[in-house]
Design a binder for these strands. Structure first.
Length: 118
DNA sequence: CGCATGACCTACG
DNA sequence: TCGTAGGCCATGC
């Protein structure tokens, strides 16, 4: 059922740490849905506004914030939220997945090890 | 039930 | 990095 898959997606999305971003494919894979990145997109689209889910931390594989169909919520709203978390965007509206990309192997990089330096 | 669309991804050039 | 092509699947008409 779709609802069950959506629950997995939400479970993964809520795990995205502060100041980090994850791609649809990544979330889908972590949710146990390798080829269902599109489903993640639909899941986000169906998300209510007052949701506690960090949907703004979910972006596409290109490192850019995806544009919702038809009316978008605002000019760079998602980008603003990410910037508030410390995520930096370049002129192309793209972010560095190498630095801000969420590493499932390093859920909490509170110490050294996974240093997002580059 | 079939067709078109979509907050997408991967592969190839 | 970008453009094109193929694929996946839920949702709406």
């Amino acid at each position: 059922m779709a609802d069950r898959d959506l629950a997995k997606i939400y479970a993964v999305a809520v795990r995205i740490p502060f100041g980090r971003v994850a791609t649809y494919g990544q979330v889908a894979t972590l949710a146990g849905l390798p080829r269902r990145a599109r489903l993640v997109g639909h899941a986000m689209r169906e998300l209510p506004d007052g949701s506690n889910l960090p949907w703004h931390r979910v972006i596409n594989a290109a490192g850019k914030v995806s544009r919702r169909s038809g009316l978008n919520i605002g000019e760079g709203y998602q980008r603003h939220l990410l910037e508030e978390e410390g995520v930096v965007f370049d002129e192309h509206g793209r972010t560095d997945l190498e630095r801000f990309g969420w590493d499932p192997d390093a859920p909490l990089p509170r110490s050294r090890k996974a240093r997002p330096k580059r």
